[in-house]
Amino acid sequence: MNTSRNITALLAAAALFASAACSVTTDTNEVGLDYDYDSWSGKTEIDGCVTPGQRAWQDINDVGIVYPADQRSFDFSESGDAESKPITVVSKDNLEMSVAGVATFYLNQDCSTLQSFHEKIGKKFAADTPEGWARLLSVYIKQPLDRAMDAAAKKYDWKQLFADPAIKQAWETEVAALAQQFIKEQAGADFFTQFRFTLQQPQPPQNVRTALASAQEAIEQNAAQKNRNEQVKTELQSIKELVEVLGPEGYVLYQAMKDGKVQIVPVPVGSNVNVTPKQ
């Protein structure tokens, strides 16, 4: 038995394997799909899923796809790194309002569901790339969410959505239910799960907010003027009652004494005191 020749053959086989094999490696926040390539038929067939933090060895012609396994988000706000600008809705009384917020969710990691997601949606959008994932969010998250927010907003007037916390909470609850329904309809299956929606207060256009603030300021000024009028009315009534008791000249003297314009010097009875008026 030629030991050195056997060792050489094993090393050559190992080198050949290394050059003809690759792996699907997932980080702890990723999940993968492992597709085997059939050289006879020229087709690829699913071999299974790769769970987070695992590695699956493949032939060089096999295909490996990696998707996120952690919580994903769709941010629609004025933030520079948001996936979208705020979404617009139309209230019951036909005022267009803008809403900022964020939706969080997970990609369904059930192996057969993940395979279906990839073959029906992911492959078409190249969703395993950042650009493709962004396009997917726009179609399968933003559009159904926009539809849900608009449908729920049409039940309420804009002032209710803008200023009534109870109405805003009811609207947000309804949006969450409708959005999950519409997202599933858009995707065709439960490809996305565990949704959480955080919606900011719907905002009317700036000119409406300015007019509303001006109207509120006018109301407050009017209320303040009413208070001043009541104060003057009370003072006049007090003056009238003093005049009735003291007489006009007596009231003038009383007011002068009250304002410190008249000095009173007590003089004992029988004192020899002369008072010289100021010239």
Rank of each mutant, 00 (worst) to 15 (best):
C49T: 09
C49L: 15
C49H: 13
T51F: 01
Q54Y: 11
A56W: 03
Q58P: 03
N61D: 13
I65W: 00
V66Q: 02
V66W: 06
V66G: 09
Y67T: 03
Y67I: 03
P68K: 14
S73A: 09
F74W: 04
F74G: 02
E78M: 10
S79A: 10
S79C: 13
G80E: 08
D81V: 10
K85F: 03
I87Q: 00
T88K: 02
V90P: 02
K92F: 08
K92L: 12
V99P: 09
T104N: 01
S112R: 13
T113R: 06
T113V: 05
S116M: 06
F117R: 00
H118T: 01
H118M: 06
K120S: 09
I121R: 05
K123Y: 14
A126V: 03
A127Y: 02
D128G: 05
P130Y: 11
P130R: 15
E131T: 09
G132Y: 00
L137P: 13
S138C: 09
Y140M: 10
K142E: 14
K142A: 14
P144L: 15
L145C: 06
R147D: 13
A151W: 07
A151Q: 15
A153Y: 06
A153F: 07
Y156K: 05
Y156E: 04
D157Q: 10
A163W: 13
D164Q: 07
P165Y: 14
A166M: 12
A166F: 09
I167D: 08
I167C: 07
Q169V: 01
W171F: 11
W171N: 01
W171M: 11
E172T: 15
V175S: 05
A176T: 11
A177R: 09
F182C: 02
I183G: 07
E185I: 06
G188D: 01
G188T: 08
G188Y: 04
F191G: 08
